[in-house]
Amino acid sequence: MDAVHITGTTRLYAVLGDPVRQVRAPALLNPVFARLGRDAVLVPVQVRPDGLPELIRALTAVGNLDGLLVTVPRKQTCRRLADSVTDAALSGSVNALRRRPGGGAVDDGARMD
């Protein structure tokens, strides 16, 4: 496995779950970031259900965090915690949340740009 070079300009993404041992997204997406020349890294973050609201508030205040991926069974809870949702969230759940530039989270149909 190649080392990920993280600097003060690196954009952060997190995948939230409990447990996170099974999470494959970092192994899949970090090489894609590198291949595309994106200064970004995706890390797993283990959070218990009762800690999810506080963690979402804290992470969406982090200025260099761009997005959150959500694992089962937290998808419906995270939709309720989003500051706003788009029409793409018709299912009542989310796969991803994007951090607004000024803070807060919005579900925008899993767009991660």
Rank of each mutant, 00 (worst) to 15 (best):
Q22A: 15
L59H: 01
L36E: 10
V47W: 04
G17M: 01
A34M: 03
V15I: 11
L16S: 06
R57W: 06
N30V: 01
V70Q: 07
Q22C: 14
R11L: 11
G67V: 03
D18G: 07
V43H: 11
N64K: 05
L68E: 03
T77P: 15
T9Y: 13
K75F: 05
V70L: 11
D66W: 11
V70D: 04
V47L: 08
R21Y: 15
A58K: 07
P49I: 03
A58E: 08
T7Y: 13
E54Y: 08
D18H: 13
P44C: 03
E54L: 10
D39V: 00
E54S: 12
L12S: 12
Q46V: 08
Q22I: 07
N30M: 01
V41W: 09
R24Q: 13
L29A: 08
Q76T: 15
L59Q: 02
V45W: 14
V70M: 10
R21F: 15
D18Y: 10
R21D: 15
Q46W: 10
D50C: 06
L59F: 05
L69V: 05
P26I: 00
L59W: 00
K75N: 07
R11G: 12
G37V: 02
G63F: 03
L55R: 07
D39M: 02
A14H: 09
Q46N: 09
L28G: 08
V70C: 12
A27M: 04
V62E: 05
D50E: 12
L65M: 13
P26S: 06
P26L: 04
Q46L: 09
R35L: 14
P49V: 09
I6W: 14
T60D: 09
V62Y: 14
